[in-house]
């Protein structure tokens, strides 16, 4: 099997299980984001790849070879730490050349490599600068260059952009993605920021409480969340519970909705993204998949308009563009249409 494989990995710290039994395959050359709230075990998973933590049970395989017991310093994986961990007593160039120097690289080789890497991260002519005199974004780039100095098989990043301000973070996300595409290196990034994951990842691994919830490309995570946790964590959503009444039909408070991939019977939870809900002024005739509600509040953000609705006692949020805005004000009754393909049936979390 190619790529990086987690084979029944479990990690416990004393009585606390940080990572429950996890099996996962990360394909060669992909950009993968481990996404979840803090304390969900994503950093522990990354540290196990780097060898900074030993799994309690299970194996980690890289291109078919078991690397579980190989010490960190023999794995040759590049890693960028959350606080970057640049060596304060070395200059930019010495930091980047560190992995080459300890392997006995000659001065000329180190110099050439530093120049190439600094060009790669767009910081030319910075080699002699002391690390303390760099800005946050520059330190970020130096840490990336240092981690890539060995041309590692795996590129690991632990919340690498969390220290940057919002604007710089967004541009670094795009830059990091382009860098990864240029080098074609398997990259694993830990993040708690779902926008960051959506921007960069080929594959998102959603985790919470030490468990992997879903592994899928970002768009699929958004459109077809597997359970309520994923639906709620990625973007905002409306969770509606109901009971399967007939084939393809769900009885919910206030009417009947339609959905694909329904179980034959039983209680189900639906996730409907706010932007997929269609609003029209109440006209008295309700078809299947349409409920009646009251507008409780309208929040006009210019580029989009959010409608807070009360539908049969449940709070529902809908988002429209200015051109689709229905002609309603707070207090009006509206028809709330839930298109069949927008109603995603969730599994158990």
């Amino acid at each position: 099997m190619s790529g990086l494989v987690f084979d029944s990995i479990v990690k416990k710290f004393g009585d606390f299980t940080a990572v429950h039994e996890t099996s996962l395959t990360i394909p060669q050359g992909k950009f993968v984001c481990l996404l979840g709230p803090s304390g969900c075990g994503k950093t522990t998973l990354l540290r196990m790849i780097a060898g900074l933590e030993d799994p309690t049970t299970g194996r980690i395989l890289l291109e078919g070879n078991d690397v579980t017991r190989i010490p960190t310093h023999q794995r040759d994986f590049g890693m960028v730490f959350q606080n970057l961990a640049l060596f304060p007593h070395l200059s930019v160039g010495e930091n980047i050349a560190y992995p080459l120097r300890i392997r006995g690289g000659s001065k000329a080789d180190c110099f050439k490599a530093v120049k190439r890497l600094l060009d790669l991260v767009q910081l030319p002519d910075m080699a002699d600068r002391p690390v303390a005199r760099l800005s946050g974004g520059q330190k970020q780039r130096v840490a990336i260059a240092r981690a890539l100095a060995l041309e590692p098989k795996l590129f690991l990043l632990d919340e690498p952009l969390s220290a940057l301000d919002a604007k710089l973070r967004e541009s670094m996300q795009i830059e990091l993605k382009q860098l990864q595409q240029k080098l074609g290196i398997t990259t694993i990034v830990v993040t708690h920021d779902q926008r960051e994951a959506m921007t960069m990842a080929d594959l998102v691994v959603v985790m919470s409480q030490g468990k992997v919830h879903q592994v899928a490309p970002p768009v699929e995570i958004y459109r077809k969340p597997k359970d309520a946790f994923v639906a709620d964590f990625i973007g905002s959503t409306n969770l509606i519970s109901g009971r399967v009444s007939a084939a393809g039909k769900i009885a919910v408070a206030g009417g009947t909705l339609l959905a694909d991939d329904l179980p034959k019977s039983g209680d189900v939870t639906l996730s409907v993204r706010p932007e997929n809900i269609r609003l029209t002024k109440e006209n008295g005739e309700n078809s299947l998949g349409t409920l009646t509600g009251d507008v409780s509040y309208i929040r006009d953000l210019g580029a989009s308009i959010e409608f807070y609705l009360n539908v049969a006692g449940q709070q529902i949020t809908a988002i429209t563009t200015p051109s689709d805005r229905p002609d309603v004000v707070a207090g009006d009754s509206v028809s709330v249409a839930f298109p069949k393909d927008a109603c995603v049936v969730l599994g158990d979390a």
């Binding site: 780097a50 060898g51 900074l52 010490p71 960190t72 310093h73 023999q74 794995r75 040759d76 994986f77 590049g78 890693m79 730490f81 959350q82 606080n83 961990a85 640049l86 060596f87 560190y98 992995p99 300890i102 392997r103 240092r146 981690a147 100095a149 060995l150 690991l156």
Partner: peptide
């Protein structure tokens, strides 16, 4: 910062060497 030593280890330094370096 313990991540300094961890960084040295990911860059290929053994424990004794990262201590000295």
């Amino acid at each position: 910062d313990p991540s300094l030593v961890e960084a040295a280890r990911t860059l290929g330094s053994g424990p004794a060497r990262s201590f000295l370096n």
